[in-house]
């Protein structure tokens, strides 16, 4: 059996570290080959296994707690008024 090619190998031939792979995966920047490779890797690598859950949880927490607020009421109106004043018609 030939081992699967490592799809994380960079153009310069360097192998990505666990952290680099994890980051690409967590941020949704991985190709499907990379995802497949990482899934296999994670089964054998405890640090990646643990970090994956933690990193995903933090990402979700950030998304749910730090956005979704609204701009102050009237801001759009103020912007529109200013544009009108600054635009010669």
């Amino acid at each position: 059996m030939t081992p699967p090619n490592n799809p994380f190998i960079q153009a310069d031939g360097k192998k990505a570290t666990c952290m680099e792979m994890l980051q690409i995966i967590v941020d949704g920047e991985a190709t499907s080959e990379q995802q497949e490779y990482f899934k296999n890797h994670m089964d054998r690598c405890l640090p990646c296994f643990k970090s994956y859950d933690l990193d995903m949880a933090i990402k979700q927490l950030l998304k749910s707690r730090c956005c979704g607020g609204e701009a102050p009421t009237g801001l759009i109106e103020q912007i529109k008024i200013q544009i009108k004043q600054n635009t010669p018609s």
Binding site: G68, G69, E70, A71, I76
Partner: peptide, 13 residues
Amino acid sequence: LPHINSMYNFGFR
């Protein structure tokens, strides 16, 4: 304009 809420959040952060 549809991005106003994200923009405000960015500005605030």
